[in-house]
Amino acid sequence: MEILAFGVQVDEKPLLEKAFRGRHALRCLDVFLTEDTAPLAAGHEAVSTSVNAVLDRGVLRILAAGGTRLIAQRSTGFNNIDLEEAERLGLTVARVSHYSPYSVAEFAWTLATAVNRRIVRASHRTRDFDFRLDGLMGRDLRGRTVGVLGTGKIGEAFTRIAHGFGMRLLGWDAVENPACAALGMTYAEKERLFAEADLISLHVPLLPATRHLVDAAALRAMKDDAILVNTSRGGLVDTDALVAELRAGRFTGVGLDVYEAEAGLFFLDKSLEAVEDDTLARLVTFPQVLVTSHQAYYTVDAVGQIIDATLRNVLDFTAGRHSENVLIPREPSGRSAHPQA
Rank of each mutant, 00 (worst) to 15 (best):
E2Q: 12
G7I: 00
K13L: 10
K18I: 00
A19D: 02
R21G: 07
D30Q: 14
L33E: 08
A38P: 06
A38I: 10
A41C: 11
A42Q: 14
S48D: 01
T49V: 14
T49N: 04
V51F: 09
A53C: 12
L60M: 10
R69Y: 00
Q73A: 00
N79C: 00
E84M: 06
L89R: 01
L91A: 02
W109H: 12
T110F: 12
T110V: 08
R118C: 08
F131E: 06
R132M: 00
R132G: 15
L136P: 09
G138E: 14
R142W: 00
L149Y: 04
F158Y: 14
R160E: 15
H163P: 00
R168W: 08
A174N: 10
P178Y: 07
M185A: 08
Y187T: 08
Y187H: 11
L193P: 13
D198C: 13
H203W: 07
L207M: 13
L213H: 12
A217D: 10
L228G: 09
T231C: 15
G234N: 05
G235T: 11
D238Y: 03
L246P: 02
R247A: 13
R247H: 03
A248W: 03
V258Q: 05
A261K: 13
L265E: 05
L265M: 15
L268C: 07
A274C: 02
V275L: 14
E276I: 01
D278I: 03
A281Q: 15
T285D: 12
Q288L: 03
S293E: 13
Y297G: 05
V300M: 00
A302Y: 01
V303Y: 06
T310R: 00
T318E: 15
S323Q: 11
P329A: 08
R330N: 10
R330W: 12
S333C: 06
A337Y: 00
A341E: 06
